[in-house]
Design a protein around this nucleic acid. Structure first.
Lengths: 362, 362
DNA sequence: CTGAAAGCGCTTACAG
DNA sequence: CTGAAAGCGCTTACAG
């Protein structure tokens, strides 16, 4: 009695206008209306006009469910994301999803998001969704070779595309960013600045694959005759905290003058670890990230990082998937160019080494 | 001839298993299978077991489209986002969407995202999607009173919930964060630190409504007998660039010692403007943001900001919408608590004023 | 406890 | 150029 909130008057749901309603109103058959709606040119422009007017007047909109049931109706794309729920709040995923959503809208596709929870995987829904008609194609984000379920797609592999991951365990199509080229640029740049003892922070657990970066890192250093020391390497979760812990470990056990991080989040963590240890970036330590997330330019110091065209990767993957669904059988293995963005977290090495070979003394 | 890519063998789409297939396999009618699938207790445990086994063996999964067509099948929630395509890459939206997605998954709901493009609005699809069955309910993100189309929902208002926006132009249910309480805390804190000339950066164009913050700002200052000067105020786009420009304008035309920004993005821009002008934050200028986005803690200086429970707001809005769809007619006007998070972008005012009243000399 | 049958709203051969 | 009719895969009264 004391509280009296005006209840939301439950306006009865206006009964949807059906195809047959339009047909009656326009004085034609449902088949005709259907054809007009679908732009079938066989209908005379006279009746077309009449039908369109009726559609307009009644405010008719086709029932998607019914359309899908009859085979028509734009197919749905599914985006499979890692199980942890926060993916949408992660800028890395956000960029890719943004690209997917944009291209999907442009192509008139509906996209649905699904998290790869243990239950979903156990029930095999990730493949049955494709086998049945819940989704016509699937985009995979944020998985790597540690994810065993990728093998399950074998039967339906033709309608699955991996975005920005380097998968070797399963034979899947993919749209990726050229991590290798980016890592090469980053490493060469650090070497140019005189750095010889360079740390590497990766994150192999639960997420993006860091192999490509690690390989390139070793390769570039090997070319210079530099032997990588174990103390230069650390692997942790792909979060700021992970990067912090990893950098801390490296800085405690080695005398690196620069650190390459496999993601911007890791790099931000490294920035913090350095600061906490009283190291000034870039004076005492250079830090390079990977991603070029939007806010990385606004850090202090702003982050030197490898730009990954994540938005474009998402958009292209989406387009490729739609093409595939429409019958294109060509192999998909796009690799988008990356480039280093130099900002303020990197500078000349303080201790230019006397000899390149002898510089890695622990 | 020269290039030979292994084309993706187009494995024929395995014909979906239908309800009737299961029925045949189990030696029962389709009605029985349907009831088993939907957990109807009328079926004897014997046949239940038999049917379940058949389902398991054949790998049956109900066809969503068919389910929806018959009225069953989990309804779809729609999330309407501002027209600019980058919403998913924006941490503010990301947090809310994350909350929505999480709760929706927990409640077995499917959620679809749609951008409020001019075309979509012109065609009236934002309401017709509800009138017809494309969506059973709709969540509105990132709109404010400048968005005229909000009036259109009148007829279907009972299935629409506004998330984290203060809408007065239309009578819509909402789940919001308590901007007013947050702004009060922020202002009181700045006053405690001795600040008297406090700037305010808002963003009224295309996005979240800043009225509540502005009102509170004025109110709190008025209580202290402080008259707000025009030169303390600036409004710009809700981006880092916008915040930079707005702060620059304020710093050029006034002698504020602190700035309250209506979003973290704006605050980051203010940080930059200050830096560019040679002002040290917080020594020369205190900056307070609004949002508490994940990366705001990792800025340098880390940002003092009002924490908005965006994830929770998204989750709660999602739940309320489902409850509403299921028949709850209660008014929805949840208001989630906010609080100030003190970090390193704020400190004592350098010039503690001689007199509170006289302190606002330009 | 189970089944036969109608119906959800659309599309698509097939006739005319 | 247009229509009558069957069918998409499911659910739900209605009988038994």
């Amino acid at each position: 009695m004391d509280i009296h909130v005006k209840p939301r008057r439950a306006k009865r749901r206006t009964k949807p206008v059906r195809l047959s309603d339009v047909a009656t109103a326009a004085g034609v058959s449902t088949a005709t209306v259907s054809m007009v709606v679908n732009g079938n040119p066989r209908i005379s422009s006279g009746t077309q006009k009449r039908v369109r007017r009726a559609i307009e007047r009644l405010g008719y909109r086709p029932n998607r469910a019914a359309q899908r049931l009859t085979g028509r109706g734009s197919p749905a794309l599914m985006v499979l994301l890692p199980a942890h729920r926060q993916t949408f709040a992660d800028s890395y995923f956000g960029e890719i999803i943004s690209g997917i959503a944009e291209r999907a809208a442009a192509m008139g596709q509906i996209v649905q998001f699904e998290h790869a929870t243990p239950e979903l995987l156990r029930a095999g829904h990730h493949v049955s969704m494709l086998q049945q008609q819940a989704a016509d194609g699937m985009l995979l984000l944020g998985f790597n070779d540690f994810h065993v379920f990728l093998n399950d797609f074998d039967e339906v592999a033709s309608r699955v595309i991996v975005v920005d991951s380097h998968i070797t365990r399963a034979d899947l199509d993919s749209v990726t960013c050229d991590y290798s080229a980016g890592a090469t640029q980053a490493m060469n740049y650090l070497l140019q600045l005189g750095h010889r003892r360079i740390g590497l922070i990766t994150s192999s657990v639960g997420g993006r694959s860091a192999d490509e970066i690690a390989e390139t890192y070793r390769h570039v250093l090997a070319l210079r005759g530099i032997t990588v020391e174990d103390s230069w390497l650390a692997d942790d979760k792909d979060t700021e905290q992970g990067g912090d812990a990893a950098a801390d470990k490296i800085l405690r056990n080695s005398d690196v003058t620069a650190i390459l991080a496999a993601s911007d989040r890791l790099a931000i963590g490294a920035l913090h670890a350095a600061q906490r240890r009283g190291l000034s970036v870039p004076r005492d330590l250079s830090v390079v990230g990977f991603d070029n997330l939007r806010h990385s330019a606004f850090l202090n110091p702003s982050l030197t990082t490898v730009h990954l065209p994540l938005h474009e990767a998402g958009a292209l993957a989406c387009q490729r998937l739609v093409e595939r669904i429409h019958g294109n059988t060509q192999r998909i293995a796009d690799r988008l160019p990356t480039h280093l963005v130099v900002r303020n977290s990197t500078s000349l090495a303080r201790d230019l080494p006397v000899s390149t070979v002898d510089s890695s003394a622990a």
